[in-house]
Design a protein around this nucleic acid. Sequence first.
DNA 1: AAAAAAAGTGATGTATACATAAAACAATAC
DNA 2: GTATTGTTTTATGTATACATCACTTTTTTT
Lengths: 219, 219
Amino acid sequence: MAKKNLEEFAYKSIIKMILENHFKPGDFLLETELSDSLELSRTPVRHALSLLVAEGFLDKKKKKGCFIPSPSPQDARHVFYAREHIEGLAAASAARYASAGDIEFLYDLIEKEKNVENPGTREAKIAYVTINESFHLGIARISLNKYLEQYCRHSFWRSHTYIFFFDRYYSGLNPNGQKTSPRQHMEITKAIADRDEEKASDLMKQHVRTTFEQLFVKL
Amino acid sequence: MAKKNLEEFAYKSIIKMILENHFKPGDFLLETELSDSLELSRTPVRHALSLLVAEGFLDKKKKKGCFIPSPSPQDARHVFYAREHIEGLAAASAARYASAGDIEFLYDLIEKEKNVENPGTREAKIAYVTINESFHLGIARISLNKYLEQYCRHSFWRSHTYIFFFDRYYSGLNPNGQKTSPRQHMEITKAIADRDEEKASDLMKQHVRTTFEQLFVKL
DNA sequence: AAAAAAAGTGATGTATACATAAAACAATAC
DNA sequence: GTATTGTTTTATGTATACATCACTTTTTTT
């Protein structure tokens, strides 16, 4: 990763570390440790941590430090509930405003998703995550509403804390041993292409709920 | 205001200045100017500005600074659209989870709102703003979903940029010369007290839309 | 030996000096 | 007169030294 902007670099690096399970819930992210390991001063690290706290990715104790919030089934329900409805709104809005290029973009992603090689490997998992992110945040972007987009992005990332935590999900397989995402992504995209706002919204809500249920099958 | 925590002090002071119309859209909030006028160093000011940017109060240009976002009818439609639906969700959730104390809290606010003295004065305006914030963010809190609450808070404040800009609104009067907010607040609260999630949601959505329409009557 | 007081530790909180880059301006070429 | 390049300005971006406060450990007192 480029170090042009140290603040941005610190921000992205810390998120990356969190998503790569570098820390466990309750761990303190010390400014000095991070600045050492990222090889920059405390200032940009401190800045990045503040943002992450403001955005709700981290919790903070005054004069003590920032720490990874403890995930709870309750909190997961809250994120996914918010995410479900907000992405539903975004999908409806996307169905209204999507250009031909946007729709092509979504179909391309689904093609890529179907053709990920060596499913089950670490590389395949990373590919799925990347494509999935592009799809969901893509629809958020296509909604043309920067507020919806921002909230989608936030709840998406926050929900990914859980997806990485209970990472059984990214086997990418449902209980029947089949991938559900590409099919659902396809249906959503079709609804958007058909300009069917309500259907796009409903399918997206259902899709997010499916993700949640697959994750928390045992909770 | 106490200066125990300089970062908090800076944060609150800057918000206060913004809300008191100290700046106009497009104005840059310079770190050095602010730190001079608040009589502290750039560090806490810079920190506060970062938070305000993260929270969407301010926009930022890299290496240039933080500035008051310029309102546009398009942007206003986007904020109010997002706010309408998210506050609708929060109201539904609040109808489900509100405690007796919560409901009393809401009724108390409505009482206070009805009894604001000397309508039309600057003091009355500030009182309305304060009460209105407590009501809307109160419902967000009562939803018991911290994500919904966060998005409510964000879109609420962002929409307030417009409310303060076109401040005809806080005459508090509708085209017929009557205050509409207390009545709508009362109806929403009743729906919450009745545990009628759908009604609470619909009324809240309608209420936010009313606010928008009163603001943009001429746009 | 238990409790209270005091000193020590280690992190964040704050101020400030310096580096860097965007933007404004001036000078020059055309 | 306009466009383009070079210089200056100025505010942010970054590093770092020092202050402060919560917490821990040690010491003292009873």
